[in-house]
Design a protein around this nucleic acid. Structure first.
Lengths: 331, 331
DNA sequence: CTGAAAGCGCTTACAG
DNA sequence: CTGAAAGCGCTTACAG
């Protein structure tokens, strides 16, 4: 029913090997032969069976994207960046949501079974269990891996692409200090994402440098549950500057403080840390670190491509630039 | 290097056929044999090659998700719903972003080549070109398809899961009419998504029923570019009620009208049409049709599963319930 | 309940 | 530049 390579070969009057070459490595075939093959293939509506191809060549031309909560604007945007370059290099992408630590063994099995040529590990924290799996994937199974917008604290050799989050944390804090703010808080996640830790380090560095008191609130990204955390935190501290590790967290805090009667940015300034579209929908519009999310995804996929074709990488850690976008929530 | 089914067979002292059965159809194998096989497999760290499996059985246990802009909150949420049930049925998912009409032929090739067992088509409009491909996929290649949160205007037989968008459009308009609103606008997308058209029909029905004047603004979902469209529209019409087909569009409009000095909801009411997390981040909090996005994704994947195992479907169009959530932007 | 064998649809040395 | 043939790692009638 569905045309195979043999059908094409028969119709073109050549062997299946020649069809394979005409389609995959044209320079190995006489132009005219190639023309005939292409014609036959077209007439039959031939579409190569990727499974057979993968089995025979031991290359699936598939990569796995392992992602935490896809509903986070930054995660989705990163995936878009990945898809864009994946499609230009003709890789297809398997989407997997990060399992809990105890299910990581299943993840390993899934990935190895699927014979993907590479894996992209997005954003997530790198616990012991997760690190173990990543390392096994790379070392035992020799599957190239790139960490996307996260870094491994334990292992310099795991490829990654991100921005310098520590510096960004430092910069944005200093920005608030320059405004004259004295009580600057960092709202961060309960989960210890490596990038959150880095942001925190940068924040603390600036705070110490200027002899200020640190105020850190650990909360979840969940809008329903973080309301109380943030309210309590805000009521305990007399803040005049707030940095959220996620735009949505900064906005949630801003909403609370506004309803407490504070004027933004007269009484208190806010910075988000991603520059998603949330920044444009809230009022006043949120100032933010402009992290090149899409670009991070795209770059990571490109890096993975290089690894997969066996190229030596110049550096295992790619650090992209960021900027600070001032809108209406800062002076 | 990597253990194959033959390695396991040798270690367990059985044939590879028996290993295959022990792993895939346990009831066909003596319990003790099975135990030995499992032990051997575990010791060798055996992970079945999904490519070989797929080739031999002509089932890839993969489905393709074709999605428009993943950065839209509703789309990402839908994908989460899909992933959740896909993983329980042990399907892996290939993520593909909807190509432009002229690239649809490539999409066909990609999908057929990959030998996916089914496809999920998300949200997008169904142009002639796209419809043609979907139909070919289903009829020529016999690949089960489910439309997710969209419907085919041309073809009753294309499976779909959504809510009754026409009724929802009608209901929400009537809700505003009951508030006493007289100049009610619908902000919708330039792109003629089937669901947008349905919302519009419902809106118009209610407007006519009450002899009101329709006000429809066609704009893009892009926050940068729709500002002018909406501003112009708002200035031309003296609105006291606004429905956005997307939460973000409703919020964009609300921001504009607020900055024009109008008080929400005293002077004007707003409804969004998805109930994404945007509704909670803006102020006042947005009232919205609560579309069960996640559930729609989950249900669609379940429906697809049934089709893939060859079950007869009771109905090709699944219609889920919705509700209206009143928050602070309505009376 | 189990094994031998053919087959799934490609790729790729090898030889010419 | 091209073909014959082995091989990729499974599944699944078929026979026993």
């Amino acid at each position: 029913m569905k045309a195979t390579i043999f059908d094409v070969a028969a119709r073109a009057g050549v062997s299946n090997a020649t069809v394979s070459r005409a389609l995959n490595t044209p320079k190995l075939v006489k132009p005219e032969t190639r023309k005939n093959v292409l014609k036959a293939a077209k007439e039959l509506g031939y579409k190569a069976n990727a499974l057979a191809k993968g089995l025979a060549s031991s290359k699936s031309t598939q990569v796995a994207i392992i992602t935490p909560d896809l509903a986070r604007a930054s995660v989705a945007e990163m995936v878009k960046g990945i898809l864009s370059v994946a499609s230009t290099y003709e890789y297809s992408t398997i989407l997997i949501s990060s399992p809990s630590d105890d299910k990581y063994q299943d993840l390993l099995t899934d990935i190895v079974s699927s014979r993907v040529d590479g894996v992209l590990y997005l954003v997530d924290e790198i616990t012991e269990a997760k690190y173990k799996v990543l390392k096994e994937l790379r070392d035992t199974y020799r599957i190239p891996i790139v960490l996307v917008n996260t870094v491994s604290p334990n292992d310099e050799k795991l490829n990654s692409v991100a921005i310098d989050y520590e510096k960004a944390g430092y910069d944005v804090t200093k920005e608030l200090i320059k405004e004259g703010r004295k009580n600057i808080a960092l709202l961060t996640t309960l989960k210890r994402y490596p990038v959150s830790v880095l942001k925190e380090n940068g924040y603390l560095k600036a705070i110490e440098e200027y002899n200020l008191t640190p105020h850190i609130c650990y909360t979840s990204g969940n809008l329903d549950s973080n309301f109380k955390d943030i309210s309590d935190f805000v009521n305990k501290n007399h803040l005049d500057g707030v940095i959220g590790v996620r735009d949505s967290i900064a906005i949630a805090c801003m909403n609370i403080m506004k309803s407490n009667g504070l004027i933004v940015p007269k009484d208190v300034s806010f910075y988000g840390f991603q520059n998603t579209r949330y920044t444009l929908l809230c009022r006043p519009k949120l100032s933010a670190i402009n992290v090149p999310i899409y670009e991070i995804g795209a770059r990571a996929m490109k890096m993975l491509t290089n690894e997969m074709i066996g190229e030596e990488l110049p550096s295992s850690r790619v650090v992209l630039d960021y900027s600070i976008v001032k809108r209406e929530t800062t002076l």
